[in-house]
C-alpha cells in the first residue's frame, strides 16, 4: 500500500487532511505536555546533582531546553520549506514556511524568557552575554526579520520568494554568527553554559525533558497546520472549493 504524498502538495488535498490531523496533533501534544509537567514536578529529585549542583529552579530545564531545541529546529524547517519552494516553485511550500515562522518566534522568545529566569538564581543575573543566550537572541531577530519582510511586501509572490531567500541567507549565516559569538577571541574560547551532557543526566529528568520536547513538537505541528489552513483559505479565496468549504463552515 503506497500513499501518494505528492497528492498533498496541492492545497485542495492538503486542506482537509490538515484539518483531520490537527486535533490528533493537538490532543497528543496536550497529553505529552501534561505528562511531562507531572513527571517533571513530582517524579524528579529536588536537586540537580553532578559537578554543578542546582536546587529546585533547575526545573526550568523542562521548558527551557525543549523550547530552545524547537526554536532552532523550526528555523531549519522554515529554511528547508523556503528552499523547496524556490527550487520547485511550489506554492504550498512557501505557505508552510510562512505558517511555521510565528510558532518558531514564540519558542525562541520562550527560550530567552526562561533562560533569563533560570539565569537569575543560577548565575545571579537575568541577562548575561553568554554565547548561547546571545545566539538565541540573534535567532529571534532572524525570525522577526523574516516575518517583517514578508508582511512588508504586498505582492504575495514576491513576498514569498524574497522572504524565502532571506531565510536561506540566514541559515547560511547562522553557523558563522553562532561561532563568532561563541568564540569572540580565536586565540581562546570560553563559555558560561556548560557543555551539554545528555548522557549523564538523571533518567527522570531526561524523561520529562524529552516528553516535553515531543509535546512542543506536536504542538508546533498543530499550530502551523492551523495557521496554514488560514493562509490557504485567504490565498485561494477565488476558487470554488474554498467557497464550498466556507459555506459548509458557515452552516455548522
Amino acid at each position: 500500500m503506497t500513499i501518494n504524498l505528492f497528492k498533498y502538495a496541492a492545497p485542495t488535498a492538503f486542506y482537509p487532511a490538515a484539518g483531520r490531523l490537527i486535533p490528533w496533533f493537538g490532543g497528543l501534544a496536550l497529553i505529552l505536555i501534561l505528562f511531562s509537567l507531572y513527571w517533571g514536578f513530582f517524579e524528579t529529585p529536588e536537586r540537580l546533582g553532578g559537578s554543578n549542583p542546582q536546587k529546585e529552579y533547575y526545573r526550568i530545564i523542562f521548558i527551557h531546553v525543549p523550547a530552545a531545541w524547537m526554536s532552532m529546529w523550526l528555523y531549519l524547517v522554515l529554511a528547508a520549506w523556503s528552499a523547496i519552494g524556490l527550487v520547485f516553485n511550489t506554492r504550498l511550500s512557501f505557505m508552510m514556511a510562512n505558517a511555521v515562522a510565528p510558532t518558531g518566534a514564540i519558542f525562541t522568545f520562550i527560550a530567552l524568557w526562561t533562560g533569563a529566569f533560570w539565569g537569575r538564581p543560577s548565575w545571579g543575573t537575568y541577562w548575561d552575554w553568554d554565547p548561547r543566550l546571545t545566539s538565541e537572541l540573534i535567532l529571534f531577530f532572524l525570525y522577526i526579520g523574516y516575518i517583517a519582510l514578508h508582511s512588508a511586501i504586498d505582492d504575495t509572490r514576491r513576498a514569498d520568494r524574497a522572504s524565502a531567500l532571506l531565510a536561506i541567507v540566514g541559515l547560511v549565516m547562522l553557523p558563522i554568527i553562532f561561532w563568532s559569538i561563541n568564540c569572540p577571541d580565536p586565540n581562546q574560547c570560553a563559555a558560561l553554559h556548560q557543555r551539554s551532557s545528555l548522557s549523564n543526566i538523571e533518567s527522570n529528568i531526561l524523561t520529562a525533558m524529552l516528553t516535553m520536547t515531543l509535546g512542543f513538537w506536536l504542538y508546533s505541528f498543530a499550530t502551523s497546520f492551523a495557521r496554514l489552513r488560514g493562509i490557504i483559505l485567504l490565498r485561494e479565496s477565488d476558487s470554488g472549493w474554498v467557497r464550498k468549504i466556507v459555506e459548509r463552515e458557515a452552516r455548522t
Binding site: 529546585e56 533560570w118 488560514g230
Partner: peptide, 29 residues
Amino acid sequence: QGGFGFYVWASFGVTFALMIAEVVQLGRN
C-alpha cells in the same frame, strides 16, 4: 519550590500563557 517559586512559576506561567494565547489567536484568526 524550595524558595525559587518566583523563577519557576514565572517561566512556566509565561510559557503556557504564550502557547494558549497562540491557540486562541489562531481560533480567532
